[in-house]
Each structure stands twice: as C-alpha cells, then as structure tokens.
Nucleic acid binder design. Structure first.
Lengths: 355, 355
DNA sequence: ATGAAAGCGCTAACAT
DNA sequence: ATGTTAGCGCTTTCAT
C-alpha cells in the first residue's frame, strides 16, 4: 500500500476538498470517462500493469486525482475472489501476550499488503462460531488461530475447506494446517537446569492445566533437566496450577497458611502464576529470592518490572512466523508447515543471581 | 450471527463432509435451483424477510443445508453498500492498554453483529496512510481511532468523508466526529488529593509529554487538587516525563545519582513511568512506600502486581463506548458525540496505606 | 408471496 | 497498448 505510484497519489489526494457531489461514489467508469480511456485501462493503471503507455497512465492518474477516486474493496474482492485480508482468532482470555503476537502478525501482514480481521472467541462455542464465520467464503483469505481449545476434529474439518489455516501454539496431527510453536521443552529444561545448577535441592513445580500442550511440554522439559542432573522430581512438590495469577496466589497462600516449609525454589510454568506466588509470599512477609528462588515462563511485560527470571517466549516472532505462513499459503509460496521457535532463559533477580 | 435460524443452520452444517465438488463455491443460484425458487426468494430467506411462506422457507433452508451454502461477504457488501465491519486504528506503541480497549470494542461490536478490522499505525505517516486506506469506500462502515498523534486538520478532513469516525482519548473541535475520553482531570485530582491528605508536603510530579491531552489534563487535575488544599506545587519537583518506563527509570536514576534528597511522594502521570521509578529506587536499595510514596495513572495490569496505587482508566468501557458510538453512527441510532468516562483511584500499598 | 432482471464496482479474457 | 464485454455473488426494485 505504499510502493505503488498509484496509491501514493491516492492517499495524497484523499483529503482534497469537495470535488463532485458527495452523494455518488466515484467509480472506474467516472475515471475512464474523465480520462477518455476504457475502464479496463483504468483498472490496469490501478493495478500497475506494465501494459499501459506512460502518457495514458499519467492521464488516468490525473483523472483519479481530480475525481478523488478510491477503489472499492468489496467489488475488487468479488471480482478477484480474494480479499487481501487474513483473519485472526484469539482466545477470549488474554494470556497476557496476545497483543504482542498480534503486533508480530501485523508487521508481516503489512509488509505484504495484507489487512487483518480480528475476532475473539469467548468460550468454546464462540470459537466454533467465529471460525465458521470466517470460513465463509469471501471474508478472509487465510486464518490464524491462536491457542484455541477446540478439538482436533474440528480443526481437521475446518482444514478441509479451501481456506489456509495457521495454528499458533497448537499442532494438529494429520491435518493440512501450518503451525507455529515454541520450544516449550527446551525452555523448561533451561529454567529447571538453571535452578539445579544454582544448587537447589527442593524444587517445587507449579504445573499448568492438564492436557494443555504447553503445560505438558514444559513438564517434559523439567523431567529432561532433572534426569540429566540426576535429580529426582518430588511428586509432592508438583502443584496443580491453572496458568492464572489467582491460581499461583491461592496455592502459595494455602501452602503458607498450612505452615509447611517453603521449598528452596519454584518453577512456575507461566509468569502469571509466578506473580501470584510472589504476591502471596509478600503478604506473608516473605520475599523472592530471599525466601525462595522463583522462575516463570513466557516473559510477559510485568516479569521485567518484577525482576522475575523467566523463559522468554518470542511472541512477536510467533506472530510474524504465523503471518508469513498464512500469506505464503495464500500466495502459493513455499511454506514450512511446522515451525518451532526457540525460547531463551532470561535471568533476572528472582533466583538471587545478579541481573 | 447467532439469533437467526438461518445462521444457526449454516454454522451447524458448515463442516458436513464432502458434498458437491470443492471446486466451485455454492451460490444463491445453486440454492435456488435446488429448492425450485428464485434467487430473490433465497435472498429473502437468508435475510429473514417475513414475506416468505413458511413452507418455502423450509425448502430453501434445506437446500442451503444440503449444499453447504455460505453467503459471500464481498458480494453482499457490494450489493448492500455496507460491510458490517468497523475499522480500528491503534498507535504503533502500546501504551499497555490497547488490548483491553480492543476487547471492549469487540464486546459491543459482536453484540451488534459487527466485525473488526484492526491496523496499527506505526509513526505519523503510517497513521495517515492507514486511515486513508480505511477511508477507501467499502472496507469498513466506521472507524475508531485510538489515541493517535495526527493533526486536528487531518482528522477534520477525514471527518468530512461519509465515514463515521470515533476518536478515543482525543477530542477534535469543530469536527463531526464522536469522541470517548476519560476524566483525566478528576482522576489526577483524586490522586493528588490522596497524597495531600496523607500529609505529604514535598510532592514531585512526573509529568507527561508536552502537548499530549492526557498529560495536560492530568496536570490540571494536580493543580486543582493543590489549589483546593492550599498547597503550592514546587516547580522544581515537576519532572519532564515521556510516559515511558525508561523515562521514569532514568529520571529517578539521575536524581538518586545526583545525591539529591528524595521527595516525600511522587505522582507519576502514568503507570509505566511509576514502575520505572520503582525499579530505579530498588536498584539503589530504596523502596516504595518506605522511602517515598508513589501514585501512578492508568491501572495497567502490572500495577496490581506491583501494588501500585493508581488511577484506574476504564479501558474496557472506553472500548465499549467507542464501539457503541461507531455502530450507532452507522445505523443512524442516537449517539452522544462526546463521552467522558469516570476514573477511580485504586489504593494499593505504594503510598503506605493498607490495601 | 414470488419471480425477472438490473445493477453494485471491479477485473480479466478476448479481441483488436 | 487499449477496448469490449462478460461475469464475480448478492440484493432489490418492479412486476405479477
């Protein structure tokens, strides 16, 4: 929307004052009459076809400017059978990083002159409805589904339609869909190893909701690290978390109220829970890392403010990768169907190590 | 997208397996043939016109289901000259709450069966381009512009087009645009009064960027509170801020490095700066509220984690209000053109008061 | 209550 | 290089 001489001219002229009655929109036909060429030629100019004599082009461009012509998206989409827009469906709950991912998606989309339609699926039925809506021919050219909880079966069926689908944070076997994941395993491994290397011997793990792919993979990462270090994970110290701040808060609160001794360290499988833990401790006059070392996962913005050591999820990059996959799928470019992005341990002060 | 019997049926049937070749999309014509009525009647059924005999309706509905028909958005938009979608343009930089606002926008939009196109304007030229793009007839039915830095003149010209525009956090005089603001003045007043009532006598103010409406209004609120309390704001304690975390961090860092004594209290005109201040203090072994009371503004998520007393900006409501205004403008409903939403002081522990 | 037909504004063969 | 024309899929008068 920027390189073209055409667009340049149009956006420069969009705000010229009242030419023509504001009643009827200006169409290619108007432009063609004004410039004495056919609508086909006008269309060619608009679409930067090389098969237009410079002189003609100039004439058309001038008419476009004079009339304040702007091309109609719907008509164009209808005629070309493509919308130049990609749909993005987010889960209703904000895991804290959807806006970052969205930015990433946008960055790449813009670079390829694609627009974004976004929707939030609130609840499972909502997800289905939203997705189904977008699948309706004509709205979008591709779909990016972020971390939704819908069944594999649903995704598979959706994928059978003509519309390319990119999944973020959720692979689906046996389906013709692209997916962008992060390396949860090695991220969790790094976090756990960090704690182990620091010499902690009673390490609690604040787990995620059962059946979530992130939760599962992160747990596996913990086991990997433990096995490598010859450390045995104490089942009694694996707390059932839910990925919410409140979950971490309550669990830690209960623990402290019960009078049980704090573990040496804790690995909360995502940042919000880690922060809930911190808050519960603070309210009990305890602090991190003095009374317990703490590591989180995701590196949401607040993690930095709180000095929380955590595993960085490259949200921006995930968005970009998903966006790229989507556009490539649409334009028929080569696309790697499964991408796994690396994470990185960010050491701050919550483990007692200098930052 | 939910009440209609029609849509219900369609979304239920969207994933039925392979009926018809996946090559050619199913159109109203197909449905009309299958059900032995005209396309006009099919259209009537689709749009829930009452002028269709129940028996006919059923027949058409069945055909729709059998064929897996889905209406084409572009064609519909072209024929009706409306898109049922509203465009949202956000600033490139994330003031930390755009995602909340977006949720609010979405909530209302969904309730009225509107879709969302979002764009981020990176930089001033980008803003113009994005807005201009959306102004192009046919993309969206209305535009919500969030807190952008473009000139009044630009907004005014844009407003002269047929497209309804809603501004968030930025009123424009003399233009036919709706705006949704928050009551910065009374919010800042409340924060300042809080500090004053606590008995602080050397209160620093970490200001915002010059010329920003939020910054200006919040400053005015401070003055109001001061005047009412008979307190004189010390010019030397008014620091020039920029609304960024880094700004607060550096300013406080420099202050501390310079060896100057800390003020009793500080009012940072937004949360990120307040958090930067906290971090700088922490790195110097100082803490809030022990060494200085601190209040922020906006109540971003992290404020809660950090126990920062702050003025709550009702982001979700702003979004909803903007969305409502936009839809009403489109549908011709009654709309209050200027809305000012109330803020609320949230007392946490950063002033030493119990939470 | 239903049908015939004329667009909505643009693009893309095909022809020249 | 340019023009003619037939759609794209849906809505909407205007008849009946």
């Amino acid at each position: 929307m920027n390189v073209s001489g055409y667009t340049q001219d149009v956006s420069d002229t969009i705000f010229r004052d009242g030419n023509g009655d504001p009643g009827r929109p200006v169409t290619v036909l108007d432009v063609s009459r004004q410039s004495g060429v056919s609508t086909a030629t006008v269309s060619r100019v608009i679409n930067q076809s090389p098969k237009v004599r410079p002189a003609t082009r100039v004439r058309v461009l001038k008419a476009i400017e004079q009339l304040g012509y702007m091309r109609n998206h719907s008509a164009r989409a209808l005629a070309r059978q493509k919308t130049d827009t990609i749909g993005v469906v987010f889960p209703g709950i904000d895991s804290g990083f959807f806006s970052e991912v969205l930015k990433g998606i946008n960055e790449y989309a813009v670079s390829r002159d694609y627009h974004l339609m976004v929707a939030f699926s609130q609840g499972s039925q909502g997800e289905h409805d939203r997705v189904a809506e977008y699948l309706q021919a004509g709205r979008v050219d591709a779909l990016i589904l972020m971390n939704l909880g819908m069944s594999d079966a649903f995704v598979r069926q959706a994928a059978q339609r003509e519309l390319p689908i990119v999944l973020i944070d959720r692979p689906v076997k046996d389906a013709r869909v692209a997916s962008v994941m992060i390396d949860n395993r090695s991220g969790a491994d790094a976090a756990m190893s960090h704690l182990l290397e620091l010499g902690h011997s009673r390490i609690a793990i604040l787990a995620g909701p059962d059946g979530t792919i992130d939760a599962d993979q992160r747990m596996e990462g913990c086991q990997l690290a433990a096995a490598r270090a010859g450390y045995e994970i104490d089942k009694g110290l694996v707390w059932p978390g839910n990925f919410f701040w409140e979950g971490g808060y309550e669990l830690m609160n209960n623990w402290l109220e019960s009078g049980k001794p704090l573990p040496d360290a804790m690995f909360a499988l995502n940042d919000p829970m880690a922060m809930g833990v911190m808050e519960a401790m603070r309210e009990h006059g305890l602090s991190v890392p003095n009374d317990m070392a703490l590591v989180g996962f995701d590196d949401v913005q607040a993690a930095r403010y709180l000095g929380l050591t955590t595993v960085h999820s490259p949200m921006r990059e995930m968005g970009r990768a998903a966006s790229q996959a989507a556009v490539n799928l649409v334009t028929g470019g080569r696309t790697q169907l499964e991408q796994v992005l690396e994470t990185e341990l960010i050491v701050r002060r919550s483990c007692g190590v200098d930052r």
